[in-house]
Design a protein around this nucleic acid. Structure first.
Length: 311
DNA sequence: GGCCAGGTTCGCT
DNA sequence: AGCGAACATGGC
């Protein structure tokens, strides 16, 4: 067992606990990662090499810094660089929130959110495939059910490693899922439809027919067009991927029920706001709508905005 | 027990 | 093109 340590310097302002908490949905464990007692942990797949990353806050408010410890067999400099790159995405360290704050300060609805969530960055998935699979699984169902399903998929198809007697799972590679059958996925409580979607994506990515990473850098409209051509991917999923995996700053999943409720609570007088109305209202937040979305979701995940139930 | 959840597709008009 | 049903499951 070898050990590698290094520091990362996130773009200020950066609140490590808030951002790591958002990643794990403010639960101690969520999907492939955990955030307990100030330590963010995730089993990374570094080109086939498994390494447990442990990340802690190590700086002050003015000069944010995080300390990373990597545990694994045969870790070398190249593996450490891969880990650094993955963690930069997962913890949003290179994300610059300042342009968003400049706009939000002057907005009556957003200013309180920024106060409450100051330093929250927009984290990115380690891969587009991971974000897509988790998004498909999470379609239409409650957050609770989504959490269970995501955990089952990761623990069934992800590679496992033990550290200190505890099990950690890497997010499954496409070929591991592609080797499964529809029935295998149905056994994980996915519906027939979702099993088909998840398996279809895994097979196409594993075969090289579908190049999800190649979407990086394309114009948002083209990304949406290519993603929605995939069976099982509609506008909500495409926009969510823009925000959560592709670094787009102006994504807005107006079809999201939770977003519609939060918008209603925030600027709509209480009742849920219709998708079209959400979209129209959001125009004034362009081109920072990925941040708005993240801050809205964070406020509800962390229970900071009171919502009225759907009427 | 019925209805709804961080949607999407499919089959009807 | 637009609308309703089906989908699996846990919680209220």
């Amino acid at each position: 067992m070898s050990q590698v340590t290094f520091d990362m310097e996130p773009a200020p302002p950066y609140d490590f606990a808030l951002t790591a908490g958002y990643v794990t949905h403010f639960e101690p464990r969520y999907a492939a990662e955990s955030f307990e007692e100030g330590v963010y942990r995730r089993l990374l797949d570094l080109d086939g090499l498994l390494a447990l990353a442990e990340v802690r806050s190590a700086g002050g408010p003015g000069a944010p810094r995080v300390a990373v410890t990597l545990w694994g067999e045969g870790l070398d400099a190249a593996a450490a660089e891969l880990a650094r790159a993955q963690l930069a995405l997962l913890l949003g360290t290179e994300d610059d929130v300042r342009p968003f704050y400049e706009m939000a300060r002057a907005d009556d609805a957003l200013a309180p959110l920024v106060d409450a969530l100051y330093g929250l960055h927009v984290p990115q998935a380690a891969s587009v495939y991971e974000a897509l699979t988790l998004s498909i699984v999470g379609q239409q169902i409650s957050a609770q059910v989504a959490r269970m399903l995501r955990g089952l998929i990761i623990e069934t198809f992800g590679r496992r490693a033990e550290f200190d007697g505890k099990s950690f799972y890497a997010f499954p590679r496409p070929d591991a899922v592609a080797a499964a059958s529809i029935d295998d996925l149905r056994a994980l409580k996915l519906s027939q439809r979702k099993a088909e979607y998840v398996l279809g994506v895994a097979k196409r990515v594993a075969s090289g027919e579908l190049d999800l990473e190649g979407l990086r850098g394309l114009p948002a409209a083209e990304v949406v067009e290519r993603l929605t051509a995939i069976r099982g991917v509609g506008p909500w999923t495409a926009h969510w991927l823009l925000i959560s995996a592709l670094g787009e700053r102006d994504g807005f999943p107006s079809g999201d029920l939770a977003l519609q409720r939060t918008m209603g609570a925030l600027v709509g007088g209480g009742a849920p706001m219709a998708a079209a109305e959400c979209l129209a209202y959001s125009e004034q937040w362009s081109p920072h709508r990925s941040y708005v979305t993240t801050y809205l979701f964070a406020s509800t995940r962390a229970g900071r905005v009171r919502q009225s139930p759907p009427s």
